[in-house]
Amino acid sequence: MTQTNKTVLQIRGENHIVQPGQIHKRWSDAAESKGYRVVARVRDKNSLALECKTCGGLHVSRYYVLLNFQPGCPHCIEARWRETAKDAGVEFLRRDPKHRHYAFYRAECGHEIRRQFTFIERMARAEVEARCEICHHAREQEEAIQKGWELIGRDPKGDAQCRIYRHAEGCGTEARIFRNNMQTGRFTCPGCGENWSTGPSYLYAMKFALETGTEAVKVGFSRNPESRLKYQLHRNPDLPRELLLKVPMRSGRHAQRVEKRLHKWLATEFPDDLVPPEEFTDLLKVKSELYRAGLEATILRQMHRLQRKERRAAERSRIRSRSRSKRMRRARP
C-alpha cells in the first residue's frame, strides 16, 4: 500500500501532514497483532499514525517501536489516569511537560497540586493522602497567628520541621522555631524572653475516659490547654476527652503555684479519689494527679472560686495602675 495524497491529520491537538510512501505489510501485521491499525505515514519517513482498536484514538509512533515493542495508546493511558485520579478523590488536569512521571491534579479543596502517577495510585488504594501546599501553608499561618506570631517562610537550613516566624504581637523578633512547638506554644521568644513562666497561662480541668469504663478528671496548668488536650496528653488520638474549664492566670509561675496548692488540698481532703497510675499510664502521658469523676463538681467549684479570686486581683491591679498613673501626671512640672 502506498500513501500519496497530501492531507493533514489532527492527532492529539497537533496537525500532521500525511507523508508519501509505502505502508509495508509487516507494519500493518504488527499493528494488527498489537491492537492498532496503521492509518498513514506522518511527520517523517519513520513515523506512523496508529489508530487504537480499543478507543479509536490516533497517536504517532515510530515504525521500529511498533515492530519491536508494544506501543501504549496515550488516549487509553490518559483515560486510566483519569479513572485512577477519580478513585483517589482528585481530578486529573494535565501531564507535567517537564517530567514524564508527574501530572497536575485538582484536589478536593479546589487547588492545583503536582504529584507522581504512582502516588495517585497509592491514594486510590487508600495508602496515602495528598496534602495541598496552599491549604497547608494557610494552616501554618493560622497556627502562628493564634500564638501572636507570623509565619515568614521555610527554614533556610533545610530542616522540614522548622519554620521562620516573626513575633508580630510582641517584640518583632524573627526566630527559627519547630512547627510542633509553635502548635503547642512550648518555646521562648529569643527577643523579649517571654516564656511559660512569665507569660499568661491557664489553670485547667479535663475529663478523660479510661479503659475500665470509668472517667477521670485531670487538673493542671498550661499556656494553651486546647493544644495540650489535643496533642500532648493522650497516647491514643481517639481517646474520648473534654476540656471542662480553664481559668486565666497572670503568669505560668503563678499558675504552677496555684495548681500545687490545689493538688495538695485535694490529696488531703479526698485521698481515696486519686486514680492509681496503672489505670491510665497506657492511655495518658502523665504519671499522677488524676481524680475520680465523682470529684468533678468539687474540682470545678474550687476552680470557679479561684477564677473569682483572679478577677478581683486583676481588678485591684488595674486600679493601682490607674492611681499610679494619676500620681505621676500630677507630679510632672
Results as ranks from 00 to 15, higher is better:
residue 97 P to D: 03
residue 97 P to W: 08
residue 97 P to C: 03
residue 97 P to V: 06
residue 97 P to F: 07
residue 98 K to M: 09
residue 98 K to S: 08
residue 98 K to W: 05
residue 98 K to D: 05
residue 99 H to W: 12
residue 99 H to G: 03
residue 99 H to Q: 06
residue 100 R to I: 14
residue 100 R to Y: 13
residue 100 R to K: 10
residue 102 Y to H: 14
residue 102 Y to P: 10
residue 102 Y to A: 10
residue 103 A to P: 11
residue 103 A to Q: 12
residue 103 A to M: 12
residue 103 A to L: 10
residue 104 F to D: 10
residue 104 F to T: 14
residue 104 F to Q: 03
residue 104 F to S: 04
residue 104 F to V: 08
residue 104 F to R: 01
residue 105 Y to R: 05
residue 106 R to L: 04
residue 106 R to D: 07
residue 107 A to C: 06
residue 109 C to Q: 12
residue 110 G to Y: 08
residue 110 G to T: 10
residue 110 G to N: 08
residue 111 H to K: 04
residue 112 E to A: 07
residue 113 I to A: 09
residue 113 I to V: 15
residue 114 R to C: 10
residue 114 R to F: 06
residue 115 R to C: 11
residue 115 R to N: 06
residue 115 R to D: 03
residue 117 F to C: 08
residue 118 T to S: 11
residue 118 T to P: 09
residue 118 T to H: 10
residue 118 T to I: 06
residue 118 T to D: 09
residue 120 I to W: 05
residue 120 I to A: 08
residue 121 E to Y: 00
residue 121 E to V: 02
residue 121 E to W: 05
residue 121 E to I: 04
residue 121 E to S: 07
residue 122 R to V: 05
residue 122 R to H: 09
residue 122 R to A: 15
residue 122 R to T: 07
residue 122 R to S: 14
residue 122 R to M: 14
residue 122 R to G: 01
residue 122 R to D: 12
residue 122 R to C: 01
residue 123 M to Y: 00
residue 123 M to P: 08
residue 123 M to L: 13
residue 124 A to W: 12
residue 125 R to N: 12
residue 125 R to T: 00
residue 125 R to M: 07
residue 127 E to I: 11
residue 127 E to Y: 10
residue 127 E to H: 11
residue 128 V to H: 02
